[in-house]
Write a protein that binds this DNA or RNA. Sequence first.
DNA 1: GTTCCGCATGAATCGATAG
DNA 2: ACTATCGATTCATGCGGAA
Lengths: 306, 306
Amino acid sequence: MSAAVTEAPPLARPVQPALLGPRLTLLQGDCRAALALVPAESVDLIVTSPPYADQRKNTYGGIAPDEYVAWFLPIAAELKRVLRPTGSFVLNIKERVVDGERHTYVLELILALRQQGWRWTEEYVWHKRNCYPGKWPNRFRDAWERCLHFTRERHFAMYQDEVMVPMGDWRHARLAKLSATDRTRDESKVGSGFGKRIENWVGRELAYPTNVLHLPTECSNKGHSAAFPVELPRWFIRLFTRPGDTVLDPFAGSGTTLMAGAALMRDAIGIEIVEDYCAVAAQALGIVRRDYPRDATAGVIRYATA
Amino acid sequence: MSAAVTEAPPLARPVQPALLGPRLTLLQGDCRAALALVPAESVDLIVTSPPYADQRKNTYGGIAPDEYVAWFLPIAAELKRVLRPTGSFVLNIKERVVDGERHTYVLELILALRQQGWRWTEEYVWHKRNCYPGKWPNRFRDAWERCLHFTRERHFAMYQDEVMVPMGDWRHARLAKLSATDRTRDESKVGSGFGKRIENWVGRELAYPTNVLHLPTECSNKGHSAAFPVELPRWFIRLFTRPGDTVLDPFAGSGTTLMAGAALMRDAIGIEIVEDYCAVAAQALGIVRRDYPRDATAGVIRYATA
DNA sequence: GTTCCGCATGAATCGATAG
DNA sequence: ACTATCGATTCATGCGGAA
């Protein structure tokens, strides 16, 4: 057999989108080793939610807050390499409480990423309508997370028209008669139309959204547990890419980002170290295991479309 | 006349609230000079929205983003001195965009304040329901600001019951009949250790809020561009103080914090350098000019209740 | 069909206690 | 003193089945 037979196809599609549908790739293995297989400047958008410091010890190793920046920086360097100059990097993260106060590792990460050459273009807020319950003497429930938007260049690809929302009644009538306490409550209907089909809005006046996203967390009942709801990557994918572009999630988990990308006809690459998550994600995505010499050398197992 | 006649009364009320109503003081002058007149550990809550970097250069002379931390730190040191150990410091701020990306001075300020001995206890989000219109090629409208919560000690005063909100309608159906799992501690699969005891919620009408505040911006022209809505200081004043306590706003502007404090029967101290703002605020608060030698020495003009 | 209802579950944090 | 473990605390959502 010839060498070409055993060679893995390029992870990024070299030409315009095929009629066959999006190309999906899931690499099971260490993040940095797997990223080494991704060609330079081949990705249009990175959307990911890395393991938060010390947060998922049972599934991932757990990274101590004080070591978080040092752990993340080499990965970010690889992400910078594979991202196209006009691409975007959306990092969903939230610092945890340590010793009664918010730890500063996320702030330090932002500063360190800028040192690495990233531009901290924007910080979107994901408002979690149904956040964790709980009561503590010194704080309320944490109902928001950061979606940090980094870019390589000042000018980057952004398709604002793709995420417009109806200017419905929320702007005018409805808030006037609410009580003061009601007004402090969640008026989250404002942006909850993000996930609805655009056809429903035909004939209505559209407006651009803001940098605050109102999305509920997905709690079970869907067969998998995801870090963020599928609407989150979906929104950023529509905003920062076009069909045929390539999306990357280096901490793919159960594959939420890849599913959003596939449904939107974007090529998608995922990396996940936990075998069980990969199996579930591959199953849901309808992709199968492919063995190539170079993957084995990198200690990576590949699942991909035919 | 005796010396006692010309001596200014103490800015913080030494005893329990008088029946006469809250004591209001507005000091027109430089922030640091005026703060020197405030006794140590006499303030229960500081709520303020300082001049944003370079944004109101007409009125405040403008602080360049790169100099913001150095400008703010000496003031913060004074704030730490006047705040009671159990008190809170709420800083409403948002970094501006410089050269197409978010400037990092707010992040650096948080780190610097921690170096100064402050604890970064929490970051509340003020979601601005009706934010400014506008469109830019690389970002959406900015609909949120930070309300950074700093404390001196790990344990501080917090009156959570004062800001409770109505529970969602789900409770009507949910709590009518308890299921078997409702009575037992229910372990989460992820091992978060989260369990619930729904029995405790029966008959409950109110729930605790989250760390996301949904408040409209006040568009009324008060001649003060960066003013926050009165609901914002009002919420934090109810949360972190009791009637008779003392609230301080070192950048009082048009006096929003003082009005909120007065209406809630808290003593309030404001500092504002712009003469026109002071005049408007004093008028609205119903306080009058008082001349004392020590104020004149500090270069400060005092407005106060009788 | 539509509405209602039952129910499982999710990036948590604090204080006390034990080693 | 310093770390590890354990019990206690509390909402909102979407799915699926029943009415």
